[in-house]
Design a protein around this nucleic acid. Sequence first.
DNA 1: TCCTGTGAATGTGTTCACAGCA
DNA 2: TGCTGTGAACACATTCACAGGA
Lengths: 212, 212
Amino acid sequence: MSARIPQVAVKRLPVYLRVLGDLAAQRVEIVSSAELSRLTGFSSEQIRKDLAHFGSFGTRGVGYRTEALLDGIRDVLGLHRDIAVALVGAGHLGTALARYNQSQDQHVDILAVFDADPAKIGQALGGTRVRDVAELPRVVRELGIRVGVVAVPAARAQQVAEALCAAGVEAILNFAPVRLEVPPSVHVENIDLSQALQALAYYTAPGGRDGA
Amino acid sequence: MSARIPQVAVKRLPVYLRVLGDLAAQRVEIVSSAELSRLTGFSSEQIRKDLAHFGSFGTRGVGYRTEALLDGIRDVLGLHRDIAVALVGAGHLGTALARYNQSQDQHVDILAVFDADPAKIGQALGGTRVRDVAELPRVVRELGIRVGVVAVPAARAQQVAEALCAAGVEAILNFAPVRLEVPPSVHVENIDLSQALQALAYYTAPGGRDGA
DNA sequence: TCCTGTGAATGTGTTCACAGCA
DNA sequence: TGCTGTGAACACATTCACAGGA
C-alpha cells in the first residue's frame, strides 16, 4: 500500500487534487482514469499507476469515487491536517503566492509572513500581518512551522534559508536564483522564474526543435 | 554535435548560464566540471554529459573556457539573438517576473505587457508600458514575439492562450492553475505556485519520508 | 462488458569506469 | 598527471498488454 512514491508522481498529485476538487464541486461522484486523463493530460495508465502506489481506490468496471480519492491523495501528501508555512519576502512574488494559495484552500496555511522592509511590516497579507524578519526564529518555532518559502533577493536567500533550517523547517520552496546550502534532512525545491523563461527559448523555431 | 538534447538537460542549461555568468564576472577563465558540480549541485559526470550533447567545449586535463561555454550554451538555447516575450497579466506575479527577468539580462526581452484592467494600462513595467489586452493579436505579430507568459486568473487563461497561439507564439509559460488546450506545435510549460507548495508537504515528517 | 490493477517491455536519464588527450 | 569525453551498467519512469473483479 503506502510504499515510497516516485518523486515525479508526487508532483502530479496536486494536479489530481485540483481536478478532483472541481469534480467534487460539480457533484460528480465517480470518475474513470480515462476522464482524469482528459482533464489532466496525463495518460490513463500513468494515472492508474500513480494512484496504485498508495492503495486501491477504484472499483473495476466502474471507476474511482471522487471523494475517496480526494481524501486518499490529501492523506498521502499530508494535507489532511493543516500544514503550516512561513513565507519570507513580501514583495510581488510573495504576495502573488499568498493570494494564489489562499484561493486554493488545500490545508496549506501561510501562518506567518516576514520581510526586512519596515514599510511592509504590519501590512496585511494572506490572512496575517507581515512581521519583522528578526522575529522569524521565535515565531517559526512557536507556530510549529514545517515549510518555508524563500522569496527574497538572491543576496539574502542563504541567510534566510539558514534561519529557517535552524528554526526546524523540513522543506523549503526557493524562488531566489541561488543554490541553497542546507542540511541534508531539509528538502529544497527550486523555482526560478527567469530560468524557466530561458529554458523555453529552446523550444522556439530556428533549428526546428520539437514542441511536444 | 548538435543532436537533440534531453529535456531534463535543457532545464539545467539556464543554471549553468547563471553560474558561468558569475564566474565570468569574476574573471575566472577556466572552470572544471568538478567546480561546476560544487556550484550547481549536479554531479560532475552529469555536467560533462550535458555539455557533451552539443559539442566538445573542454580541454582534457584542463577544464572548460568560461566564455566559450557561455557562448555555447546561449547558442543552444537560442539566446545569442534576443528572444521576444509577451507577458499577459500585470498583477503581482507578472510584475515579479518582469523584474526578475530584467535583472538577469540574458537576451530574454519582455517586449510587451498586457492587462485587461484599465487602471493598469499605461503603467510602466519591465522597460515597456502595459497595453490593453485587446491589442495583443496585433502587437504580438508586429513585434515578432515567439514566447508568451500567461499570468492571468485561471478563468481567463485559456482565452489568452488561444490569442497567443493565433498570433504565432511558439512556446508558453503558464502560471494559471488550468490545463491549456493548444495546438501540438506550441510548447507549454506549467508553473503552479500553490501546487509546488502542496507537493512540498509530502516531504515533511509524519510517516518519515525521505528528504534527499 | 467495462475499467482497474499490474507484470513485462520499452524508453529515458544517471552513474560508473575508464580510455584518450593535453 | 589531470580532467574531459563516452561506452556500458544501472536506476528510474512510462507505455503496453492483459489478467481479474464488479
